[in-house]
């Protein structure tokens, strides 16, 4: 329907945007293998030298370990709370039901400094010292929505008749949940959890308000770039963080797209 010129223009535009989106990412990959410690283009040569040096850096290993623990705890909490909220909203009608979706989304819909600042002043006023616990609380709060969205999307796809059939055949609510509902939604719970992990692993803004003196991996990167120190190591760490978030997301994407066949859509 569109004229030939219009199609050509739109195609070219799409190509340009794709280049715009991916050239910076390609540059990150290239710089991680930079042989020199000078950050100029073109890079001096390819080398794996900085991977070894980065691993030898104790601060980086510490930060990595903290990030992994925070992400695991935050993911666990958000998987439980997000799934529970999704079940309640999907299966029950009650006053204020609409506002629950709103409340769940709020921590990521509001600008990051609002959530960070709110939690920070809350911890100061209630006298809670900043620790790994406060980082986890912050992350879990904005991860709930990721799991919630994933699980409720799957619940909406499920035919109600399946659980009704189970109940007609004598299964009570718990039995039906364990044997019928859970197997059909499990991939959505897992993929929601994976996305929550990726989100937590990469978060900076809220973390800076809740971490105190500790460094997660993104905080280490942020500090190093700001001070202009250890930039060759930053190149490597940035690539690693990217892989840490990208690979789980690809897994989760495959899961969500393969699952519906077995979930009886």
């Amino acid at each position: 329907m569109e004229s030939k010129a219009a199609r050509l223009f739109l195609g070219a535009w799409t190509l340009m945007i794709m280049l715009f989106l991916f050239i910076p990412i390609a540059i990150i990959v290239v710089y991680a293998f930079n042989a020199s410690n000078i950050q100029s283009w073109p890079i001096a040569g390819f080398s794996l030298r900085w991977f070894g040096e980065t691993w030898a850096n104790e601060a980086v290993r510490h930060a990595l370990w903290l990030s992994v623990r925070v992400a695991l705890f935050a993911t666990t909490i958000s998987v439980v709370l997000g799934s529970l909220a999704a079940f309640a909203v999907h299966y029950y009608r009650f006053p204020g039901r609409e506002s629950i979706a709103f409340l769940v989304v709020l921590p990521i819909a509001l600008p990051g400094i609002i959530t960070g600042m709110a939690l920070s002043s809350f911890f100061v006023v209630t006298g809670v010292n900043l620790s790994i616990l406060t980082i986890v609380i912050g992350h879990a709060t904005f991860c709930i929505v990721i799991v919630y969205n994933n699980v409720i999307a799957r619940l909406r796809q499920l035919p109600r008749s399946l659980s009704e059939a189970s109940m007609d055949l004598g299964g009570d609510a718990f039995y039906t949940f364990r044997r019928v509902t859970l197997p059909m939604i499990s991939t959505s719970v897992v993929s929601g959890g994976i996305l929550a992990f990726a989100l937590s692993f990469d978060e900076v803004i809220v973390t800076t308000f809740t971490a105190g003196a500790q460094n997660t991996l993104p905080l280490w990167i942020f500090g190093a770039i700001r001070l202009g120190q250890k930039l060759p190591e930053v190149n490597v760490v940035v690539l690693i963080v990217m892989l840490f978030t990208l690979i789980p997301v690809l897994l989760s994407y495959r899961m969500m797209n393969k699952a519906p066949a077995s979930a009886g859509r």
Binding site: P24, I28, Y31, W41, V204, V238, L239, V241, V249
Partner: peptide, 15 residues
């Protein structure tokens, strides 16, 4: 790109 680390992408532009 949305899922490939916010800091990495900002840093790329710095480079």
């Amino acid at each position: 790109p949305l899922w490939s680390s916010y800091l990495a992408r900002v840093y790329a532009w710095r480079l």
